[in-house]
Lab assay of single mutants.
Amino acid sequence: KKVIATKVLGTVKWFNVRNGYGFINRNDTKEDVFVHQTAIKKNNPRKYLRSVGDGETVEFDVVEGEKGAEAANVTGPGGVPVQGSKYAADR
């Protein structure tokens, strides 16, 4: 997939743990970017499923997906693991 931007910061608008996807609002352009659970590179080690939490600040790359921009290599700011959704089960 073609990389559009790297190391972008954004805020998770919403993320559905059961369906495994959601949207991140970019801090720079204010665009909403699709995020799939497979794009989460550093999950919270205490969580079973990969997820990001609503309102969480994340860092990610933006790539060209089939339906427009989507997030890739999602981590917390500075490459730390994401916090994850409060609806995702703990280990």
Rank of each mutant, 00 (worst) to 15 (best):
K1D: 07
K1F: 07
K2W: 03
K2T: 06
K2F: 07
K2V: 06
V3A: 06
V3R: 06
V3N: 14
V3K: 13
I4G: 04
I4F: 14
I4A: 05
A5F: 15
A5L: 08
A5V: 10
A5Q: 12
T6I: 15
T6D: 13
T6S: 13
T6E: 08
K7G: 11
K7P: 03
K7S: 11
K7A: 08
V8P: 01
L9Y: 09
L9E: 09
L9T: 14
L9N: 11
T11D: 05
T11M: 06
K13I: 11
K13P: 00
K13W: 02
W14D: 03
W14K: 03
W14Q: 03
W14P: 01
F15Y: 10
N16W: 02
N16G: 03
N16S: 08
N16C: 04
N16Q: 03
N16P: 00
N16M: 02
V17G: 06
V17S: 08
V17A: 09
R18P: 04
R18F: 07
N19Y: 14
N19D: 09
N19T: 12
N19E: 15
G20N: 07
G20Q: 11
G20P: 00
Y21L: 03
Y21T: 03
Y21S: 02
G22Q: 00
G22A: 00
G22R: 01
G22K: 01
F23C: 03
N25I: 13
N25M: 12
N25C: 15
N25Y: 11
N25F: 10
R26P: 02
R26G: 01
N27A: 11
N27S: 14
N27C: 12
D28K: 02
D28N: 02
D28R: 01
D28G: 03
D28T: 02
T29D: 07
T29H: 03
T29Y: 03
K30S: 13
K30Q: 14
E31P: 01
E31C: 08
E31D: 12
E31H: 08
D32N: 05
D32K: 02
D32R: 02
D32W: 02
V33E: 01
V33W: 00
F34M: 03
F34A: 02
F34C: 02
V35P: 01
H36D: 03
H36R: 05
H36C: 04
H36F: 05
H36E: 03
H36P: 03
T38Q: 09
T38V: 08
T38E: 05
A39W: 03
A39P: 00
I40S: 00
I40V: 14
I40Y: 01
I40H: 00
K41M: 15
K41I: 15
K41T: 14
K42P: 07
K42Y: 15
K42F: 10
N43T: 10
N44C: 10
N44G: 12
N44S: 10
N44H: 10
N44K: 08
N44V: 05
N44F: 05
N44I: 05
P45W: 08
P45I: 12
P45R: 12
P45Q: 10
R46M: 14
R46C: 12
R46F: 15
K47D: 07
K47T: 08
K47N: 14
Y48S: 08
Y48H: 15
Y48W: 15
L49S: 05
L49Y: 09
R50F: 08
R50H: 08
R50E: 04
S51T: 11
S51C: 09
S51I: 06
S51K: 05
S51V: 05
V52Q: 02
G53Y: 07
G53P: 04
G53A: 11
G53E: 14
D54Q: 15
D54M: 14
D54L: 11
G55Q: 10
G55H: 10
E56S: 04
E56W: 03
T57N: 14
T57C: 12
T57L: 14
V58H: 00
V58P: 00
V58C: 10
E59K: 03
E59Y: 05
E59H: 04
F60I: 04
F60R: 00
F60Q: 01
D61R: 03
D61F: 02
V62I: 12
V62D: 01
V62F: 02
V62A: 03
V63Q: 07
V63K: 08
E64K: 12
E64H: 13
E64G: 10
E64N: 11
E64S: 12
E64F: 09
G65R: 09
G65T: 13
G65H: 10
G65P: 00
G65E: 05
E66G: 11
E66A: 14
E66V: 14
E66R: 15
E66M: 13
G68D: 03
G68W: 04
G68A: 06
A69N: 14
A69M: 15
A69D: 12
A69K: 15
E70F: 13
A71N: 00
A71M: 00
A71F: 00
A71H: 00
A71C: 12
A72P: 00
A72F: 14
A72S: 12
A72N: 13
N73H: 11
N73W: 05
N73R: 09
N73L: 04
N73K: 08
V74C: 07
V74G: 00
V74Y: 00
V74Q: 00
V74S: 00
V74P: 00
T75D: 02
T75C: 15
T75M: 11
T75R: 11
T75S: 10
G76M: 06
G76I: 07
G76C: 06
G76N: 06
G76R: 07
G76S: 07
G76T: 05
P77G: 04
P77E: 13
P77C: 07
P77F: 07
G78P: 04
G78N: 14
G78L: 12
G78E: 12
G79L: 05
G79T: 05
G79F: 04
G79Y: 05
G79M: 06
G79Q: 08
G79P: 04
V80W: 11
V80S: 15
V80H: 12
V80N: 15
P81Y: 14
P81Q: 12
P81H: 10
V82N: 04
V82Q: 04
V82Y: 04
Q83A: 10
G84N: 04
S85H: 10
Y87W: 10
Y87M: 08
Y87C: 08
A88E: 06
A88K: 10
A89Q: 13
A89K: 14
A89I: 13
D90G: 10
D90L: 10
D90V: 12
D90C: 09
D90S: 10
D90A: 10
D90N: 14
D90Q: 11
R91L: 12
R91D: 09
